[in-house]
Design a protein around this nucleic acid. Sequence first.
DNA 1: TTGCAAATCCAAAACGTTTCCGATAGACTG
DNA 2: CAGTCTATCGGAAACGTTTTGGATTTGCAA
Lengths: 334, 334
Amino acid sequence: MPVTIREVAKAAGVSITTVSRALNGYSDVGEKTRRKVALVAQELNYRPSAVARSLVMNQTKTIGLLVSELTRDRVGHFFMFQVMYGMHDRLAELGYDLILVSTTTSRQRLVSYLDFCMERRLDGVIVMGIRLDDPYIQEVVDSPLPSVVIDLPLLSDHCGYVTTDNVHGAKLAVRHLAGRGHRKIGFVNGYSQAAVSRDRKRGYEEGLLQAGLGYDETLIHEADFTLQGGSDGLKHLLQSHPDMTAVFFASDLMAIGGLQYARELSIRVPEELAIVGYDDIELAEFSTPSLTTIRQKRQEMGMRAAEMVVGIMKNRAAPQGILLAPELVVRDTT
Amino acid sequence: MPVTIREVAKAAGVSITTVSRALNGYSDVGEKTRRKVALVAQELNYRPSAVARSLVMNQTKTIGLLVSELTRDRVGHFFMFQVMYGMHDRLAELGYDLILVSTTTSRQRLVSYLDFCMERRLDGVIVMGIRLDDPYIQEVVDSPLPSVVIDLPLLSDHCGYVTTDNVHGAKLAVRHLAGRGHRKIGFVNGYSQAAVSRDRKRGYEEGLLQAGLGYDETLIHEADFTLQGGSDGLKHLLQSHPDMTAVFFASDLMAIGGLQYARELSIRVPEELAIVGYDDIELAEFSTPSLTTIRQKRQEMGMRAAEMVVGIMKNRAAPQGILLAPELVVRDTT
DNA sequence: TTGCAAATCCAAAACGTTTCCGATAGACTG
DNA sequence: CAGTCTATCGGAAACGTTTTGGATTTGCAA
């Protein structure tokens, strides 16, 4: 059994109150007793119980990371891991910890996300990788629980979001391709239920129009963010548009899939076909040829989300929608 | 403020004790009052506080996922994400939650891993991606805290481990290459401080000897598990051994890096150079040519780790070392 | 010496559960 | 009818903290 504050108090010859105040740096405790208490606590290897503290202070210093379909998702980690890094780092700085909660967690308990958060008395939630059509997500957003959503523009009294400016990102890609002289630019989009997909599609359209190019529905293929989907998408587009000279993929993974398909058909990149991806995952730089892409600041996304959620908790900052600026990274596929 | 058990008791006209027992399915409560209590709890939207429960029951039902250098690591996620999936899933089934703790967490708090676990009163820990030379890891393993380590053979009274049989895995790779007629087989190893690297190196050696091939130190290059490291490794080996016809990489990522380098030099794979990777990450199947590799059952690793840690906690299972069998997956690079 | 403010300290309540132990009532046994 | 057993319930302690409010001591000026 761990040593309690009571034993420290007894050993130091002071009251429980004094131990608490001494260790927490309050002013109304004498310098001598403070040192004595610190020493005794050290000797006894005392670690204050976070759970007891949580109970009385009515805050757990824990925020939940809500990820849907954690198990099913086989590609999301390229994007999500770094976001998680940023989140965790900043949260640690702010004195908070991260607990994982996914559909599996709640399904196996037969409670909703929200119920789970309530039971564990989480101070806040960050939601990531949730599909637009997840029925439970609205529940947590509607609740008074402070929350921040990644890549989904949900805004309410207690809920903010952070995302990349995907419209602008897609425009950057198209503008870049148009600037290279391409007139017929295809688009392989991600999972249609994702908000980012809608935005990138809109950016693609607007980019085309701004460049004075026509918009053609049939130049768009809806895929699923996977490698295979990218490959299939390019194949499909090339069949209906053999004269297409450039393709914009809504994710690097799909772009790499496209690269592979191009190689199979001995299509030279970028001479015969230019390719732009999205995300700037680690692999983008090292594919051959290296991938031109739109960089998302994933780590910063996580950090901003972390900051916002504790900001909301402390009523310091109102929930808001943060749009991070994407960057065009030009490499060898264009 | 959330509704407490007291309010439920008052509303249902029974005692606190009865509410607790009714909701937790004890037998000594009448069917009628049980229904009444359940109804009232439902109506009031009562969620029992996990933290109060933790305090009194002396268990938090949460286990920590210890990952070192979380932020620095830019390649580990290829391997770790699925392990995490498996862990989280099985833990959820068993009624436990997962909390993230990494060096950043403890460094910013100026406490060690162990202190963190103690303060949060974690029921157990799973350690992953820790380097052999991490000074803090021994501390947690030595502690009475139930723990399971992934890919590092640490065994004690309260600490078990689960890993793939890396010696055997490497042997499978070498045997396969030898069976294809290769006589001069290079090896690009991972980060030398990793236990898996040592095992794979041993497997490489033993495999060569078993195949009747000589063992040559200079055919080994120590890299770092990264794409770039794989590329550089192959380059280095080819410079000193131009007649090498096959290379075994200690990770798929490095193997893909090698593939890229081979393509740059127009070395045909597998005709001029055969390549075998390790891990069977998602990308392995979709690289061109698709990668022959040694599959690790990552999800199962996570699940077994989860099972073991709660097993140790409940004194049901003694800590043990679990060696998961790797599988040779033959694709187009051999 | 007295009075008062400041500096230290402590007892006890509170947080929301679980559980031990005892109480009550009815049912059954003899 | 007395006694025992079972089913059902409640009181109160306990878990390990923080914090409120007051108590005690000290220092210093009047």
